[in-house]
């Protein structure tokens, strides 16, 4: 009796060890990794969002061919999930109707490094009040100088 039990036990163990992987229970393995997401937001210097703008993403290993392409959402945003096995400087281009900007983002092998911080890329900084005042002053100065020049010239005193 004991011998029969030993044989049965040995058979079960042998089947368990030798059985193909597919015959085993529905084993599943899950791994969790913090995602590397880079959020890109496009807006014009006037504050308008780049809604529906096209996005081209270039990986560090191939700056000529886009790694992926996409479209910005209604808020001018595009979410990039870069391949962290390609560390280096990723280039993201957002463009619409001939206008747009390019931004470079450093992605490291360690996912925690990827997308850290905030980078900006632009083709035109918003005009500050100072800049606008400088422009107005320039135009005013040019107009005044020209008017004085012609007034003097009309009076026959111009030397130029």
């Amino acid at each position: 009796m004991t011998r029969r039990c030993d044989l049965a036990l040995a058979l079960v163990v042998a089947l368990g060890v030798l059985a193909p992987q597919s015959l085993l229970a529905h084993a599943a393995y899950l791994t969790a990794q913090e995602p590397t997401v880079i959020s890109i937001r496009g807006q014009y210097d006037t504050g308008e969002l780049m809604e529906g703008a096209q996005v081209l993403v270039f990986a560090p290993d191939n700056p000529a061919e886009p790694w992926t392409t996409g479209t910005a959402d209604d808020l001018g945003r595009f979410l990039l999930f870069p391949d962290t096995s390609l560390p280096g400087r990723w280039t993201i281009q957002m463009r619409q109707a001939g206008h747009g900007a390019v931004i470079h983002v450093e992605v490291g092998e360690d996912s925690a490094d990827a997308g850290a911080g905030v980078a900006t890329g632009s083709t035109g900084a918003p005009q500050s009040l100072t800049q606008q005042l400088v422009m107005i002053a320039l135009v005013g100065w040019g107009a005044l100088g020209t008017a004085l020049y012609f007034r003097r010239r009309r009076g026959g005193n111009a030397s130029a």
């Binding site: 320039l138 135009v139 100065w141 040019g142 107009a143 100088g145 020209t146 020049y149 012609f150 130029a160």
Partner: peptide, 10 residues
């Protein structure tokens, strides 16, 4: 020249 300079500024 003055006209060109002024229009450049404008």
């Amino acid at each position: 020249m003055p006209r060109a300079a002024m229009m450049t500024a404008v």
